[in-house]
Write a protein that binds this DNA or RNA. Sequence first.
DNA 1: GGCCTTGCATGGAC
DNA 2: GGTCCATGCAAGGC
Length: 279
Amino acid sequence: MITHLANPDRQLAADIRAGSITFAGNKRMKIFGTLRCAQGKRMKRENRIFFQSIDEAINEGYRPCGHCMNVAYHKWKMDLFNNNIDETRNLLPQDGTVNYYGNILSPKAADRYLDYLLASIPWQHDEAVIFGKHYLTKRKVAWYADMPYEYTYSKVTKRAVVWTAELLELKAIVEQKTGERFNSCLLNLYHDGNEGMAWHSDGEKDLMKDGAIASLSLGAERKFAFRHKQTKETISLMLPHGSLLVMKDTTQTHWLHRLPPTTTVKRPRVNLTFRMMLR
DNA sequence: GGCCTTGCATGGAC
DNA sequence: GGTCCATGCAAGGC
């Protein structure tokens, strides 16, 4: 890998003409054969990174410049808007199954449920024990189920309360969409982008092993990421208002997931994770 | 074209 | 399933 600043322009131009180097924008995905990105925009010189072969570039892992990323993002949004989502596609390359269903609620219904949840759920700060320290989280949680099940994570045990009518409606919609059955739901409220959730997996003994966990997102669109426990490979996607994501099979055994904090999101997000608890 | 600054995301240590 | 800090991009100003 060669950075632009380490090499005189004239030398770089000669190397490109001779075909002895090719180059990429920033990280991951595409190789561009000119000093413009794939969208025809000039790339800022000092951000250019050069490689001597495509293999070397791929091994380094790189992606298109910001302009290309925006185009890809808008295409993804249009696909979502037009419901061009393949619900059967597995987002994970190995060791688990994650299906993305796109928007399963109309914008109006999603707004209505979000308003209801924000106003009516008895949200409480969560507790966590990490490296022996006891924390009260900024995000808030609520825990609903068929019966007052107990659920332990991060060394804290919670007791569920029984469903509300609105949560039962959402459960029915998610069950119909996924063909799975659920007996409980953990709700998380992230007030803004400052609040997130660190890498973890939902592998508690109270949970049915390899059971499906369906994650319904309401409110602010946030990034969601998976990281393989051994290979460290990461996969990320955006989860917009009214969208559904399902994790199942050995996903929790081999992959961590997280909701990264971000400074750019100012609105709240509510996440409902429907699960199957062992009785 | 290039230096400087800022903003942002990420990962590791505890 | 938190928090803090270091690091490294990406991009704007000039």
